[in-house]
């Protein structure tokens, strides 16, 4: 007894592997090419010309930090500011070797800056002057102490320290 060859329907099977490959490709492309944009809207009011006398602006604080040599083994730090209530804050820091990093100097400067910041939190710029013989390491230590409170540092001339007569 011979059975005839039965005609079988071959059900097509989708080949999943290339489909997955192309999907992964598309996902990677989207990952690398997508950029998020935040749309903002700003409404500018119509300009107004006022004839009334404007209130006088407060004088700027312009805080300045002077680092001077007060004796062979110590530095004097003077923070001076102007504004409606000018003031000054002084501190002495011992230094053994001006070319070695000094955590005492950095911490002293940071404390002075934090003290100033409790009164004038919005002031972010400070002018800095060191003695002309002060080392680059000392400058870096002072800048490290100021950076968190005053991100904007302006170096001013060493002559200002001499003129300030901080000694």
């Amino acid at each position: 007894m011979q059975f005839e060859d039965m005609h079988r329907r071959h059900t097509p099977e989708p080949d999943l592997v290339p489909i997955l490959d192309s999907l992964v490709c598309v996902i990677f492309f989207l990952l690398f090419s997508t950029s998020f944009i935040e749309l903002t809207q700003m409404t500018i009011p119509p300009s107004v010309v006022s004839s009334a006398a404007t209130a006088s602006a407060e004088p700027p604080l312009t805080p300045r930090l002077f680092v001077a040599k007060s004796s062979q083994n110590s530095l004097k730090l003077s923070l001076v500011w102007k504004g409606t209530q000018p003031g000054t804050s002084d501190r002495q820091v011992k230094r053994k070797d001006k070319n070695k990093p000094s955590t005492e100097l950095e911490n002293a400067v940071r404390e002075m800056a934090e003290e100033f910041s409790t009164k004038y939190a919005t002031e972010k710029t400070i002018q800095l002057a060191l003695d002309k013989e002060a080392s680059y390491q000392e400058l870096v230590n002072v800048m490290d102490g100021l950076k968190k409170i005053f991100p904007d540092l302006v170096l001013i001339s060493y002559d200002e320290v001499a003129n300030k007569d901080v000694l």
Partner: peptide, 16 residues
């Protein structure tokens, strides 16, 4: 770039 033993005068003059 400066050495740690360089002084503030040189640094400031360079910055200026």
């Amino acid at each position: 770039l400066a050495g740690r033993d360089n002084n503030y005068k040189n640094v400031f003059d360079t910055v200026k």
